[in-house]
Computed example of a mutant assay.
Amino acid sequence: MGFAPTPVKAAAKLGDDGLYQMDWYLESFLDLSEDLAGATSKGKRLAIMWGLKGCPACKRMHEVHLMDPKIESYVRDNFEVLHLNHIGSRAVTDFDGRKLTEKALGEAYGIRFTPTIQFLPDKIDGLTGKSGQAREVARMPGLLEPSEFLAMFRYVREKGYEALSFPDWLRKQA
C-alpha cells in the first residue's frame, strides 16, 4: 500500500527588505520589457505588485489571499508577478529604456499606497510611446476581498478590460 505525497502549500517568506515573497514570484533582472516578453512567451501576463515593509494589507494578502489554493494556483499559473518595493532603491529599466529606482518608478506610475498591483498588456507594442499608468490594462489599488482579488486576475487574464470596467465586468459575472 503506497502513500500519496502530501501537497506542499506555498508559503510566504519575509525577505531581508521586509517584503513578503512567494517562491514562484518572478526572479528578474528588473528590465520590464524583458519581463513582459518572458511572461508572454510562457502564455502568462505580467503583474507588478508594489509592497512596503510593515504594510498590514500586504501581510494579509500574503497570509490569507495567496494562501488560498484556488487563488494561489490561478495567479501562479496565469501570471508572472514582479514584486517591487514602494520605497526601494534597486534600479529598474522601464519600457522606454530609462533606469529608475523602484521608488522613482512607482512615482512615475502614480503608485500611492500598498499593496497596488499593476496589470500590463500581453504585448509590448506601443508601450514606449505611453507613460506611466497609460501602459496598464488594469490596476488593483489596495487589497480587495479574496473573491474580488481572484476576479481581478480573471478579468485581466480573460481580457475583460477590452469591453467593460472591472465593476461592470464583476456585476456581469454574478
Rank of each mutant, 00 (worst) to 15 (best):
D94M: 00
R171M: 14
K159C: 06
F95M: 01
R60W: 00
P56V: 00
K53I: 13
E80A: 04
D77H: 12
D23M: 07
L32F: 10
A138D: 09
W50E: 03
H65I: 03
L30I: 01
E158L: 11
K59V: 05
Y25R: 05
K159Y: 11
D23N: 12
A57H: 13
V137L: 00
I71D: 04
R135P: 07
A47M: 02
G160H: 06
T6E: 13
M22Y: 05
T116G: 01
D17G: 11
L30M: 13
T128S: 13
F149E: 04
R135V: 07
G18C: 04
E107W: 02
K59G: 02
Y161I: 10
A163P: 06
E102F: 02
T6Q: 10
E27K: 15
G142I: 08
Y74M: 08
Y155Q: 06
M22T: 05
E162W: 09
D122S: 12
Y20G: 10
V81N: 01
D31W: 01
I71H: 06
A37Q: 13
L82I: 02
L127S: 03
Y155A: 07
G38V: 04
R135K: 01
R90P: 02
T6M: 10
S89A: 15
T114F: 09
P7D: 05
P69I: 14
N85Q: 01
A10I: 13
E34S: 15
F79H: 09
D168F: 03
F95L: 00
P5K: 11
R76T: 06
R60Y: 11
D94K: 03
V75Y: 03
P167M: 01
V75S: 03
H86C: 12
A104D: 14
A12C: 08
D122I: 12
M61F: 00
V137A: 08
L14F: 10
P69C: 05
L100K: 14
Y20F: 11
D68I: 12
F95Q: 02
H62Y: 11
M140Q: 07
L52M: 11
D31R: 11
M49K: 09
E136M: 12
S41L: 14
E27A: 14
G142S: 01
G110T: 12
H65F: 08
Q173N: 06
G18N: 06
P7W: 12
A174E: 13
L150K: 09
F153R: 04
E107L: 08
G97D: 08
Y20N: 06
G38M: 11
I124S: 10
E145H: 09
G15N: 00
A104F: 08
A138N: 05
L19I: 08
M49T: 10
A91N: 14
K99S: 09
V92E: 04
F149R: 06
K42S: 05
K123C: 10
F95Y: 03
A4I: 12
L32N: 04
L120W: 10
S147Q: 15
A138P: 01
D77Q: 13
G18E: 00
Y155T: 01
R98Y: 04
V156G: 05
A4E: 12
H62F: 13
A10G: 15
A91Q: 15
I124C: 03
D16R: 14
E27R: 10
R154A: 05
L100P: 11
W169D: 02
I71P: 06
V92M: 07
E27F: 03
M152K: 03
D94N: 03
